[in-house]
Each structure stands twice: as structure tokens, then as C-alpha cells.
Computed example of a mutant assay.
Amino acid sequence: MYGSGVYGAVRTLTHDVFREKNADYLAQRFTGDTFSLLFRVQVLNGVAATPDWTAPGTVLHTWPED
């Protein structure tokens, strides 16, 4: 059992289309190994869509901030 948000979070770094794009986002945004990222996972017709962290409105909060 898992929630749609958890599934979407896992897909951000495992989905074959988005994993490199999202990993690049992390590498460019954060320099250390301690950070937090709050983002939106859209659920369409009961299915969690893989988030694209570079899309406007997806990332809601990051720490540390720039």
C-alpha cells in the first residue's frame, strides 16, 4: 500500500523520461547532501503523474534557499 504522492516522488528519479532532468535540477540547485524539496504530484484519473521539477508551479518550497 502506498499513496499517490509517494509513488509520484519515487517516479521523479526513476521514470525514464524525467529522471535525468530532475537529477540535473537537484545537482544545479543543491551543493550539499542535506536539503529538502516540497513539490506537487498531480493525480489524473486516479494515477499519479511523474513530476517535472523544472515546470512552473511544481516545486513549492526548497531548503536551503538561494
Rank of each mutant, 00 (worst) to 15 (best):
1 M>G: 14
2 Y>A: 14
2 Y>Q: 12
3 G>N: 13
4 S>K: 06
4 S>Q: 08
4 S>G: 06
5 G>W: 06
5 G>R: 10
5 G>Q: 09
7 Y>T: 15
7 Y>K: 14
8 G>L: 02
9 A>T: 00
11 R>K: 12
11 R>M: 08
11 R>Y: 04
11 R>D: 01
13 L>N: 02
14 T>H: 11
14 T>E: 08
15 H>P: 00
15 H>N: 11
16 D>H: 15
16 D>R: 10
19 R>K: 13
20 E>Y: 14
20 E>Q: 10
20 E>C: 05
20 E>F: 07
21 K>W: 09
22 N>K: 08
22 N>C: 07
23 A>Y: 15
23 A>Q: 12
23 A>H: 14
23 A>S: 09
24 D>S: 09
24 D>A: 06
25 Y>V: 03
26 L>H: 04
26 L>G: 01
27 A>P: 00
27 A>S: 11
27 A>C: 05
30 F>R: 06
30 F>N: 01
30 F>C: 07
31 T>F: 15
32 G>A: 13
32 G>C: 10
32 G>E: 05
32 G>L: 14
33 D>A: 15
33 D>V: 15
33 D>I: 15
33 D>W: 14
34 T>N: 03
35 F>V: 11
35 F>S: 05
36 S>F: 13
36 S>L: 12
36 S>I: 12
37 L>S: 05
37 L>C: 13
37 L>I: 15
38 L>K: 15
39 F>M: 02
40 R>T: 07
40 R>E: 02
40 R>F: 08
40 R>Y: 12
41 V>Q: 00
41 V>G: 00
41 V>W: 00
42 Q>V: 04
42 Q>M: 02
44 L>T: 11
45 N>D: 10
45 N>S: 14
45 N>V: 09
45 N>T: 12
46 G>F: 10
46 G>V: 09
46 G>D: 05
46 G>W: 07
47 V>E: 05
47 V>I: 15
47 V>M: 11
47 V>D: 04
49 A>S: 09
50 T>D: 00
50 T>W: 01
51 P>G: 04
51 P>K: 03
51 P>Y: 03
51 P>L: 01
52 D>Y: 09
52 D>W: 07
52 D>Q: 08
52 D>T: 04
53 W>Q: 01
54 T>W: 10
55 A>D: 04
56 P>H: 07
57 G>W: 07
57 G>R: 14
57 G>P: 01
58 T>G: 04
58 T>Q: 05
60 L>F: 03
61 H>C: 03
62 T>D: 00
64 P>L: 06
64 P>E: 01
65 E>C: 11
65 E>T: 13
66 D>M: 10
